[in-house]
Design a protein around this nucleic acid. Structure first.
Length: 703
RNA sequence: GCCGGGAUGGCGGAAUUGGUAGACGCGCCUGACUCAAAAUCAGGUGAUGGUGACAUUGUGCCGGUUCGAGUCCGGCUCUCGGUACCA
């Protein structure tokens, strides 16, 4: 036992012990309370960054705490391995996305191991593995059979030079990031999942999520955006009538014109006879499809020349096309009330349209209906690096599900990105097939799944990753719901909403007992340096690998836990990090010098525990008793802080305990000073990750 | 634009949720050790005034509620996350 703190040696030794003994491998055990602890799995981008370290350390601290509370803890890990960056890397390095992805996983797995996380590595999942996406394809087919998956036309960003669909991220100032060409909007046929069938349940069951942050529930509620209103019909001269949706029917008498979206049938009909309008609609069709962009555009519109008839007064109202009317909300048409609605007022001013003050309209009109802002989930991607959608298109039979015995529909792996972007539509050997129904020549679907599909059910598969005959088995019912889910606040709406939806679908298929996938949620803040998000382009990155090698995992872990409360953004600080390292050094030196605790803990664990459990303070003097009381107050606070996931103050508590500990007068052997032994033992449980099953920042269990 | 956060010493943050603002750590200052420095250890440290006990002031800005506001309410400013194809 050396007095100088050499974390690399200690950590390697203990990590080896964990691995050889399967310390963190979990089994179903009905005699204990189960605890499924999960951090959002990483995208294998190449290297771990400090944000990952923060995420996984938070979850690990929670997992180890629950383990010490006597629960049957399962903490798995995996790789969210499909996605756009692999294709970009493939273009850049002229390698197949698979190779890049798997070599990144290899490297990052080693980094996670060096950080000493208490993972059950036997449950590791990689979402680009055909054995994983096989069951995702199977699930899609169930949705298809239930009528919950369907195709419809939908807009994408189209790069006219590269002839590819662009992600919103790939559109920079309205231009394609590679070609620089102005982006067009194009309508293509795409697959959707009917998440709107579950909108009401997704909304109401938010109330049952007692251990989710209110902030996240509110964001989801607003995203679902339930509103109660009325459909009102307006006759249109020489055309079919027009239906508008309004949440404010009482403003009906103040309507002075009608605005419709660019894709509205009336706009298209009017444009067919009006070149200027057709040009205007075409002009509005350039630029990205992102909502943030659309909503910040300056309002503009054009009179279609069509006339609507006010249903009460019979007045003639002009129908305008306007860029601020959403195509995919309500009926794509609104009645404009410039005196009541700010946007209508602004638009009316620009185009000199009339304003009209009016008494509230109180008569019954139209039927009360409920609408949601939420729309169906578009899961089609025109990309290579994703799970193929298991559908075969047949001219006579239409879209046919791939028979279950033919799953998985494997993604061809030997693709060549040296000549540019590849999609499955470029690979006849992939898409040429025969119809499973009529055996005629047919074509496979060439779209792949949105990667949110993989991340919507992986937690459940982790309960039974070796199950070859079914998507899930009873082990999923044992382990789910996830008891504590930890991940970035950026996933507050989309990922978590999709996962809640898929969980309910799995429940309805009989695979789950619970209504919700995640019992408790912790949303961590960002990691910043110099007040900005770390990024290579800003040159403000901190590489956890270097820190690991120089200072060991524990200093890194203490730093990310101590420096900020989990939900707030964390500012990197070199000197703050040094402080954490210094603290661990002090603890190590103190224990080596005074009590040689580690030999005792290893060799005579029972004796030490007996000494502690006695809680014998008879020999202690008043000063020692005071210190002992203070220590108990700190421990009580630590438990309180654990329960509310405020882990930074748990570390403060460790430091306070240690500061008290060094103040206790030293009186010879440890056995003569139970106070010292107790306190030191507790402190080791709190901060030291070296001994068997003990961990970083896990408090002593109070009796 | 819309939705949801955040703002407290020189810095990261604490204040158990309306009751002594600044725990813990960093930094800085003083002292011990040292020929000296580093490391380590001990003490101090919001600001202003005072030798001092102490006084005044202080939680982004403006206003309000309350015996009492960092905390609650109204109105802002700046900033971060999301905005349906980044994950």
């Amino acid at each position: 036992m050396t007095v100088s703190y050499q974390p690399q040696i200690i950590e390697q030794e203990v990590q080896k012990y964990w691995e050889e003994n399967g310390t963190f491998e979990a089994q179903e055990d009905f005699s204990k309370e189960k605890f499924f602890c999960l951090a959002m799995i990483p995208y294998p981008s190449g290297h771990l960054h400090v944000g990952h370290v923060r995420n996984y350390t938070l979850a690990d601290v929670i997992a180890r705490y629950q383990r010490m509370q006597g629960k049957n803890v399962m903490q798995p890990i995996g790789w969210d391995a499909f996605g756009l960056p692999a294709e970009n890397a493939a273009l850049k390095n002229k390698t197949a996305p698979k190779n890049w992805t798997y070599s990144n996983i290899e490297h990052m797995r080693n980094q996670l191991k060096a950080l000493g996380y208490a993972y059950d590595w036997s449950r590791e999942i990689t979402t680009c593995d055909p054995e994983y996406y096989r069951w995702e394809q199977w699930l899609f087919i169930q949705l298809f059979k239930k009528g919950l998956a369907y195709k419809k036309m939908s807009q994408v960003n189209w790069d006219p030079v590269d002839q590819t669909v662009l992600a919103n991220e790939q559109v920079v100032d309205g231009k394609g990031w590679r070609s620089g060409a102005p982006v067009e909007r194009r309508e293509i046929s795409q697959w959707f999942l009917k998440i709107t069938d579950y909108a009401e349940e997704l909304l109401t069951s938010l109330e049952d999520l007692k251990d989710w942050p209110d902030q996240v529930k509110l964001m989801q509620k607003n995203w679902i955006g339930k509103s109660v209103g009325t459909n009102i019909q307006f006759s249109v001269l020489d055309h079919d009538p027009l239906t508008i949706f309004t949440t404010r029917p009482e403003t009906l008498m103040g309507v002075t014109y009608i605005t419709i979206a660019t894709k509205h049938p009336l706009a298209i009909a009017a444009a067919a006879k009006n070149n200027a309008l057709a040009d205007f609609l075409k002009m509005l069709d350039t630029g990205a499809t992102a909502e943030a962009e659309l909503a910040t555009q300056e309002k503009c519109g054009m009179n279609t020349g069509l006339i609507a008839i006010h249903p009460i007064t019979g007045e003639h109202l002009p129908i305008w096309v306007a860029n601020y009317v959403l195509n995919n909300y309500g009926t794509g048409a609104v009645m404009a009330v410039p005196t009541q609605d700010e946007r209508d007022g602004e638009f009316a001013k620009i185009y000199d349209l009339p304003f009209k003050e009016a008494e509230p309209f109180t008569d019954e009109i139209g039927e009360k209906i409920t609408r949601y802002r939420l729309h169906d989930w578009g899961i089609s991607r025109q990309r290579y690096w994703g799970a193929p959608i298991p559908i075969i298109h047949c001219e006579t039979c239409g879209p046919v599900a791939v028979p279950e015995e033919d799953l998985p529909v494997r993604l061809p792996e030997n693709v060549d990105f040296s000549e540019g972007i590849v999609t499955l539509a470029n690979l006849p050997e992939f898409y040429k097939t025969i119809c499973p129904n009529c055996k005629a020549c047919a074509k496979r679907e060439t779209d792949t799944f949105d990667t949110f599909m993989e991340s919507s059910w992986y937690y459940a598969r982790m309960a039974c990753p070796d199950q070859n005959n079914s998507i899930l088995d009873d082990r999923a019912k044992y382990w789910t719901p996830v008891d504590h889910y930890v991940g970035g606040i950026e996933h507050a709406v989309m990922h978590l909403l999709y996962a809640r939806f898929i969980h309910k679908v799995l429940r309805d298929l009989g695979f789950m007992n619970s209504p919700e996938p995640f019992e408790k949620l912790l949303t961590q803040g960002m990691v910043l340096k110099d007040g900005a998000k770390m990024s290579k382009s800003k040159g403000n990155t901190v590489d956890p690998q270097e820190l690991l090698q120089r200072y060991g995992a524990d200093s890194v872990r203490v730093f990310v836990i101590f420096t900020a409360p989990p939900e707030q953004s964390l500012e990197w600080s070199d000197s703050g990090f040094e402080g954490c390292f210094r603290f661990l050094k002090r603890v190590w030196a103190f224990s080596c010098e005074r009590v040689k605790l580690f030999e005792q803990a290893d060799g005579a664990n029972d004796g030490l525990n007996a000494c502690i459990n006695k809680g014998n303070l008879e020999k202690a003097n008043e000063e020692q008793k005071t210190i002992w009381r203070e220590m108990n107050a700190i421990l009580k606070q630590a438990h309180y802080d654990y329960d509310r996931s405020q882990l930074n103050t748990v570390v403060s508590g460790c430091m306070k305990l240690f500061n008290l500990l060094v103040k206790i007068p030293y009186e010879g052997q440890i056995e003569n000073n139970p106070l010292c032994a107790n306190a030191l033992y507790i402190n080791h449980l709190l901060i030291y990750s070296g001994t068997k099953g003990m961990s970083l920042t896990c408090p002593y269990k109070l009796n």
